[in-house]
């Protein structure tokens, strides 16, 4: 038994190292005072300061944020309505299965196929309206398309957990439809909606593939910028940018975890 414990612990530590060593290297070399090479030349924060003077990077950060916020807002509204529509109405069983299948499509299809399909579809839509030229608008549509499903799944699981008798009790206590919605259903659903929105936001920040296929020259986001940059040459400035992104991710994850924890204990 002791031998197994030792093995488990060693493997776990090894795996953790495997996950974090590369990321730590990025953070490490982001404060290295040299433009080329991987030998230590002293500590500096220059690369971080330079980030904030780089118009292209600032624009990319702005694009990333706009993309994430807009797509999250729209997908949360659509996904929440979808979840209520699916769970709270007496649809025939076959229809429920069909709805469920459509909702799970973005989960079981490799994202590159969704991206390819969107490229082709936008190609046709472009003949109708120039809105569908590659760019931020197309990217927002792409992001919403995979976010909606995830939001709907999260909100629906919350809806199911609220159960029928709470709403029946409200009816029994004379609540009109709108009173029920504002005083009972929405407040109880709100944690699910927020959790869904946070998931959508993180998915958007995390996405690369959909953005890569639907982006235009004016709509570069941070992941796209980093990808293009590292294919040419890796600079300490990219390390600094990546470290910052990593930092934001860590904060987001902590906020999200705190929130879902509170939700589960309540």
């Amino acid at each position: 038994m002791k031998k197994i414990n030792l093995l488990v612990n060693t493997m776990a530590f090894g795996t953790m190292g495997f996950l974090y060593l590369p990321l730590m290297a990025v953070a490490f070399f982001s404060v290295n005072n040299t433009k080329y090479g991987l030998s230590w030349k002293g500590f500096t924060l220059d690369w971080y300061i330079k980030l904030f003077h780089n118009e292209v990077i600032l624009q990319a950060a702005w694009n990333t944020l706009v993309l994430a916020v807009v797509s999250t807002l729209i997908s949360t509204a659509l996904g929440t309505a979808l979840a209520i529509g699916m769970d709270r109405f007496p649809w025939p069983k076959k229809m429920n299965t069909a709805l469920d299948l459509i909702l799970h499509l973005p989960v079981i299809i490799p994202d590159i196929i969704l991206a390819a399909a969107l490229v082709v579809a936008f190609g046709f839509l472009r003949q109708v309206s120039s809105l569908f030229e590659p760019g931020l608008f197309s990217m927002i549509i792409g992001h919403i398309t995979f976010q909606v499903a995830f939001v709907a799944l999260v909100v629906r699981s919350r809806l199911i957990s609220i159960g029928k008798d709470i709403e029946e009790a409200a009816r029994d206590l004379y609540a009109s439809t709108s009173y029920l919605l504002w005083k009972i259903t929405l407040p109880l659903l709100m944690p699910g909606i927020i959790a869904g929105a946070m998931l959508a936001f993180t998915l958007s920040l995390d996405d690369f593939v959909i953005s890569f296929f639907t982006a235009g020259p004016e709509s570069v986001t941070l992941p796209l910028f980093i990808f293009a940059a590292v294919r040419r040459v890796v600079t300490p400035q990219i390390h600094a940018l990546s470290t910052l992104v990593l930092f934001v991710t860590i904060i987001l994850v902590f906020v999200m975890e705190r929130f879902t924890r509170k939700l589960n204990t309540k």
């Binding site: 008798d165 029946e168 009790a169 009816r171 029994d172 004379y174």
Partner: peptide
């Protein structure tokens, strides 16, 4: 008459208290 128009109230098996 719908439930909201009946002067009848219920104690549910699960109590169905509003948790929030």
């Amino acid at each position: 008459l719908p439930a909201i128009k009946r002067q009848i109230n219920t104690v549910f098996q699960s109590y169905a208290l509003f948790p929030h």
